[in-house]
Simulated assay, not measured.
Amino acid sequence: MALYAGRPGAARGVGREMATLPHQPELPVPWWRVTRSDGTLAPQVAQEQARNLRAEGVEVTQRGDTFRVKVARETPPPAKVARRKR
Rank of each mutant, 00 (worst) to 15 (best):
P22R: 07
D65N: 13
F67R: 03
V69Q: 03
A10G: 06
R73P: 01
D65V: 12
R86M: 07
M1D: 03
L53P: 00
K85V: 13
R73V: 11
Q44R: 15
R12Q: 14
A72P: 02
R12H: 13
Q62S: 08
Q44H: 14
D38A: 07
K70T: 15
P76M: 12
F67D: 02
G57V: 10
R33H: 07
A2T: 02
W31E: 03
E26I: 10
S37D: 03
Q44D: 11
A46S: 13
R16Q: 01
A42R: 07
V14N: 00
E56H: 09
M18N: 01
A42K: 05
N52W: 12
V58Y: 12
W31V: 09
R12S: 14
W32I: 04
Q24M: 10
A42C: 02
M18G: 00
R68E: 09
A19Y: 01
R51Y: 12
Q49A: 14
E17T: 08
G15H: 02
A46Q: 04
R84N: 06
D65L: 13
E56G: 01
A55N: 09
D65W: 11
A46I: 06
T66L: 12
R73S: 10
R7P: 00
R16G: 00
G6M: 09
L21T: 05
T66R: 11
R51K: 15
A50R: 08
Q24V: 15
R33N: 07
Y4H: 11
D38W: 11
